[in-house]
Structure formats: structure tokens, C-alpha cells
Design a binder for these strands. Structure first.
Lengths: 160, 160
DNA sequence: GTTATTGCAAATTATTTGCATATAA
DNA sequence: TTATATGCAAATAATTTGCAATAAC
């Protein structure tokens, strides 16, 4: 299992594949995908895409606004929220609503994964289990359903 | 796999154990547990415990208030919220925050289970998979964590 | 009798929306 | 040029809280 620690906020790990990609290309890829989807590229959207591509944690709307604002003060929180919905719609970001807390976002450039949340610190660790993925699909099928998406979160405390 | 359908709002199933218990005793059990925990039993709390014990779906605070109110109009929404926190704290109910929607509650009298949410209708189906439970614990352990609680939700659409 | 709980209304938090103006295509 | 996006401020939705009145133990 590969493990990557980034600041004291977020840890990214890829349990099975363990591959890490070049983030510098993420922004371009996202913009391409957005044009593809017919999304009008405004200055504000470009900034937000930038901020999201650069983020290696799971920031919420407020934090994204803070970061975007420091690059270009001409960007409002309302636009951040509206843009996040557009980007989510276009499939370039994922929205996670962890317990009670405001929604947090991340780009979809890495393969699907689930999250372990450190309940003491709020840190987020990403992981992926093929077995669990498979079992989920089996269960849904048994119940006569197709999974559209799912959410697996482990709220945990460091051992020892 | 056992399956129990209740109104067009919620379906309860127990994948592995499939046991169904006598709900008429749930209220007494809850009140006992609460006294045990040193929780002062007010008229409002008794009503809410009643409503929760009778519920076989996953009502939100508003709906619980509606039901409680119809038994005893002298109960406010604020008290419902406050009581729900007390009951959760005491471990007699679980709080679930499904995507975006307000939190929904259920008694903890049945064994732990996860949820499949029908994204068309909002229906909730309960299921349990020992294998997934085990895998989760293994993953957390591998990352050096102990799971305090977790959340697995399958957002799905009926087949065909 | 003392301390915790209630109801009410006001506050808070996260997010959304209406509308006049600005901007991408 | 024409539809779409933006900023601002006000609206909404879910939940929480302060405080004086009330009820549990």
C-alpha cells in the first residue's frame, strides 16, 4: 500500500494501484473536459480550476473561496458555490459531505477511492478496496438495484 | 436474505442474520437505557421515545416533531432537536445524514446495518454484510486506526 | 428546593437565489 | 450580439442557542 502525506490536513493513499500522477497537467485536463462539456470558461472559473488542481487536500467552499480570492480578489463566494456545482455536474470534481461538516471537494483525476476521517484532527486518508467495491455491487444487485454512486467513510481514531 | 417492506418509504432487510424483533418492547428498553444513563424523563422525551420506537422508517427531525405533536401538541421543534441529541448521546438512536438531505433517525434496537438509498424515490433499504464490516476493520488497522463508527451508503436506481 | 428542561424567538451555518450589470463566445 | 455568468444582498433550510418560565427528582 502506497502512502502519501501532505501537510497535517490530508493524507492521500492508493491502496491497490498506488500510482501518483502529475498534478501540473490536471488543470489543463479539467479545462479541456469543461470545454468539451460546453462550459463557458470565465476568469473566475479558471482560477477555481487552478485552485482545485493545486489542492492536495479536501477544501470546503469557504476555503476554496479564500484561496481563489488570494489569486484574484474579484471572485465572490456565490460564484464559488455556483462554479462548484457546474464542475461537479461536468464530472471533474467530487463533493463529499462528511458528518455534519460543510461539503468538501476534490478533483476526479485520481481513481475512485473512499475516505477515512481522523475524528480527532479532521485529517482525511484516502483508500481503495477492490473487494469492498465488488461486494457493494453484489449487494445492490441482490436487492435489484444498480449503484449510481456510493459513499464509504470510516470515522476513526489513531491506534495506541 | 430476509426482507421486510414497510410503506413506500422504507424497507428493512437483514442480509445475514435476518432476525426481526418485537417493537412493542423497544420503548421500554429505551426508557430503561435512558434512566440507566441518568437522563431525566420528561413528558416530551417519553413521547419522542414512543414515536421513535413506533417508527419503522427513517424520519427526520421535522417529521418526528409532526408525529410527536399529534400525540402531544405541547412539544416544540427545539425540544425535538435537543432530545434527539440526548438520545443519540445515550446511544439509543442513530443519526444518518444522507446526501444533502436533513438528518434522519432510527433506534439502535436492531443490529448495525448500512443503507441503500433509492435515488428516485428516497426509499431506504437496510442491509448488512459481515464481509464488508471485516474488510473495513482490516483497512483501518492497516492505516493504524481504530474505527469508531462508519457510514456506508449505496445510492442506487432500481434495475430494468 | 434545586437543577435540568422547555418554549419561544432570535441567531447561526451552509448554501441558494433574484436581479441588474458585466462578459464570453 | 446574445446568451450566460457574476456580484451583491437578501432568502432559505436545518439546526442551535439565550433566556425566562416550568417541571423533574
Amino acid at each position: 500500500m502506497q502512502l502519501r502525506t501532505i501537510c497535517n490536513k490530508t493524507i492521500c493513499t492508493c491502496v491497490s494501484s498506488g500510482y501518483i500522477l502529475d498534478m501540473s497537467e490536471t488543470k489543463t485536463t479539467m479545462e479541456d473536459a469543461l470545454r468539451e462539456a460546453g462550459v463557458r470558461m470565465t476568469r473566475q472559473r479558471r482560477v477555481l480550476v487552478q485552485v482545485l488542481a493545486d489542492a492536495n487536500d479536501h477544501p470546503d467552499a469557504n476555503e476554496l473561496h479564500r484561496r481563489a480570492h488570494s489569486i484574484d480578489p474579484k471572485i465572490s463566494l456565490a460564484t464559488v458555490y455556483r462554479t462548484l456545482s457546474v464542475l461537479e455536474e461536468a464530472g471533474v470534481i467530487d463533493r463529499h459531505a462528511f458528518e455534519g461538516k460543510p461539503a468538501r471537494f476534490e478533483t476526479t483525476d485520481r481513481p475512485h477511492h473512499d475516505h477515512l476521517i481522523d475524528i480527532e484532527t479532521g485529517d482525511v486518508i484516502e483508500f481503495r478496496s477492490e473487494k469492498i467495491e465488488r461486494l457493494q455491487a453484489e449487494i445492490a444487485a441482490e436487492l435489484g438495484y444498480d449503484i449510481i454512486h456510493h459513499r464509504l467513510e470510516l470515522y476513526a481514531r489513531k491506534q495506541g
